[in-house]
Simulated scan of single mutants.
Amino acid sequence: MTGIAIVADDLTSAGDGAAPFRDAGFPAVVMLADGPRRPGVTAVDIDTRARPVAEAARRSARAAAAYAGADVLVKTIDSTLRGHLVAEVEAALSTSGRHTAVVAPAFPGQGRTTVSGVQHVEGRPVDQTWFARDPVHPIRSADLCELFPGAVLSTQVANLVGAAQYIVGDAVTDRDLDLLVAAVPRAEEVLWVGSPGLAAALARHLAPQASAANPAVVLEAASRLLVVAGSLNPATDRQLTRLGAATGSRPVQAADTDAVERARRLLARHGMAILCGPRHRIDGAPVPATLARATAQLEQSRAFDALVLTGGETARTVLLALGARSIALAGELEPGIPLGLIEGPQPLPVVIKAGGFGDPGTLVRLHNRLTMTSERLP
């Protein structure tokens, strides 16, 4: 294989799209800007989630054209359908050299399923959940065949490749996604459009082609863990509450004048600190930038030795502030939650988590795995 390329609209989507391939044996890197493909899997964050739709489409088209020569080309979309998904997929398809896009946003491991072309979260159509009130991309329709005009459901996938522009794949289990991937005669013939569920199915399908020489990454337990939370999703609130209760660490508001010093003391005395923004949207308040400045100040004094970043925009802004160029992935700590090493001035371990992923105990489990045990990840 000459490679697998992933075009993602934000950093968490790039990370959780590439991580299943790393677990399957492919070397994988997440890039914060366009660049040459690497061996194995290259995922690029084109940073379009919060940009105007026309610019999002241009960036998607440019990246898909740049990576059109990859054996497998994936355009990630959010499993709750946030972002400029239709404009970006249309643009990517037009420059990818492919004629058909297989659209399958289901991620059963996180309760996101597709039934009769309608996207669900925990059994409810996504436009009837909190995501209908998302402060940036409120979801108005959960019907993928309505969103993608002319799309057809995947009853006879093999016969539709090349004939239909968009094929929508139903899936309520990982097995459904495996069957969908296996039904496409050649993976290189289509543009794959989906979330980590589809990426994992593709990784399982392509695993025999992974390099046996791909080395494991050995990571020591962190002694000073910094959790930076910028997501406004209610799931993040529940996870922060549980983490604070389990560790006795109260979140530090990054906008407070003494936030950096308080976080530094917590890291030194207790080995962990939680840095967060306001738990509601404030117009004009650059929450990711505020979090990034505080994190960079803490990093200058080597106050932490591992990071957990929650929320795609926050993760990208923080990593850029730390001088990161890319992330070499080590694997997944949980489905959809990748772990990697920052490629930049300070090669710190970093976990990137989408704000809506996980149950209330997710951050507690991540804390325990990063601080209490050494992990050897394939």
Rank of each mutant, 00 (worst) to 15 (best):
P335T: 12
A8K: 03
Q156F: 14
L177S: 07
T113C: 12
P345G: 09
G150Y: 10
I342D: 00
T129G: 09
G344V: 03
S211W: 13
V7N: 06
R365Y: 11
A54W: 11
Q239G: 03
A285W: 15
L81E: 04
L377Q: 07
L275S: 00
L81F: 07
A330T: 08
A91Y: 00
R58V: 14
G248K: 11
V103P: 01
G15N: 11
T295P: 06
A207I: 07
R316H: 12
V89G: 09
A235K: 12
R133W: 11
L177N: 08
T362K: 02
K75W: 03
L319E: 04
A222G: 12
P185I: 07
P20W: 09
T42V: 10
S249T: 15
L198D: 04
H205D: 13
E146I: 01
V29Q: 15
G361K: 04
R37T: 11
Q239E: 08
D178R: 13
G15F: 06
E146C: 10
L275H: 02
G361N: 13
R376L: 14
A87C: 09
G323F: 04
T317E: 05
A216N: 13
S326P: 02
V7E: 02
G230F: 01
E90I: 04
A63R: 00
D305T: 05
A171N: 05
A221W: 04
L240P: 06
R365I: 06
A254E: 00
L363V: 11
E220D: 15
G117H: 09
D174V: 13
T310F: 05
L81R: 10
G123Q: 04
